[in-house]
Design a protein around this nucleic acid. Structure first.
Lengths: 229, 229
DNA sequence: ACCTGAACACCGTTCAAGT
DNA sequence: ACCTGAACACCGTTCAAGT
């Protein structure tokens, strides 16, 4: 028994049953061990375990990137890779996007990669900070929303009840009150963020993500304060 | 005692102690009432209460908007307003961004407003869907990340311990290994998404958000598939 | 229609005690 | 150094019973 094993078991536990249904006691049970063992191997508490999980998933974020490509191509790679990695563990997404988890070490490679690309694109100082936040906030934020879990998704409960109820409500939108929404329904029902009963695991947001990525990189290129390399 | 009162009390409870520390029993205690009362007034469970909270906050999302302005100005208003409203209840942010909460009714005005602006901008059909997702996913996602709670922020615990520890680690980044990060530290320390120990409540991401908003709207204007109105 | 009280099954966390 | 067992204080949720 060892810290890595505990973290790995926790991740697969969350993958199976969902984050909401995850518990330290059940993790201990799955490992055939007393609950206190978790505390001995990972620091103090549940939050520390979450930090380890985040680090373990974001650790591979900078792998397999081609440093010889132009800066805008590198940025595309970085964030397409981010989305791909998070999609491998969709249930963990809230930990990455909606909490400041991380031990602050594993992500440094990632930060350096992004800063390097932006610097090659002509960004320094305060403009560099803004560009970084725009990219990470916008794109990682998108993925967080994309993979937001549905209610009652303790992953094994009666997920159907809420889903069908919500789908019916959308189908019955009054064209008098909401003409545009009503008319666009065939295109948007269950495929846009607010009007959906399934998340990015079941319905692809890949095309929207790519458009977002293009808009941001094109925009940053056009506004670069200095000449790119 | 009445559903609105329960929801209002829950919101102020979360505002005070944070979402992680929120419990139905303590809510009942604060209301001077038996826990079962919560269940009687709001549907089945904790998740239903969360849905009510989300609806109550996003209900005012379309208020005070000027429908006579050009479509791009309207979009700016809508999302600046979104950010402002969520910032009024930062602890509730994860509910809006990282969960598919909502009873599906309160947000329809908001959706119609955004779709209307985009349609005036020349977007129809599938392009309309993509543009909607880009805006909501990117901008609401940004706000979710911006307000992601820090570890140990049960809002009353020893929040200092993790913060100082993390700040020290960042200050000690090795310039040999991470030259760009290290050099940019004065500009980015605690002010970019991954390298921070405080969230958007303590450090403003307003300038980054506005840049993101500009990039998206400018980009959507440039790529409009049809002539705008 | 609204509320209480008690109960059930489960948590996270700690700590003495074992080997 | 690693694990067990039991304990503590707390949950969410349900349900009979009261008025």
């Amino acid at each position: 028994m060892d810290k890595k094993q505990v973290v790995a078991a926790a991740i697969s536990q969350i993958d199976e049953k969902g984050l909401a249904a995850f518990s330290l006691r059940e993790l201990a049970r799955a490992l055939g061990v007393s609950p206190a063992v978790i505390y001995w191997h990972v620091g103090g508490a549940k939050e520390d375990l979450f930090a380890e999980i985040s680090a373990s998933i974001t650790g591979a974020l900078s792998d397999g990137l081609d440093a010889d490509m132009p800066w805008d191509v590198r940025l595309r790679q970085v964030f397409l890779n981010y989305r791909k990695l998070v999609h491998r563990h969709p249930e963990v997404a809230p930990l990455l996007g909606a909490q400041m988890q991380s031990n602050g070490v594993a992500n440094l490679d990632w930060v350096e990669t992004i800063l390097s690309a932006l610097q090659d694109g002509g960004y320094r100082g305060d403009a560099l900070r803004l560009a970084f936040n725009v990219l990470v906030g916008g794109l990682a934020g998108f993925v967080t929303m994309e993979l937001a879990p549905a209610p009652g998704s303790k992953r094994g409960s009666d997920s159907g009840s809420w889903q069908t109820l919500f789908a019916e409500r959308i189908a019955q939108i009054d064209p008098q009150v909401y003409p545009l929404t009503s008319r666009a329904l065939p295109d948007i029902s269950n495929r846009i963020f607010v009007l959906r009963w399934q998340n990015g695991v079941d319905v692809s947001y890949g095309d929207s993500f790519e458009l977002l990525l293009d808009l941001l990189i094109d925009g940053l290129r056009a506004r670069a304060p200095a000449d790119p390399i």
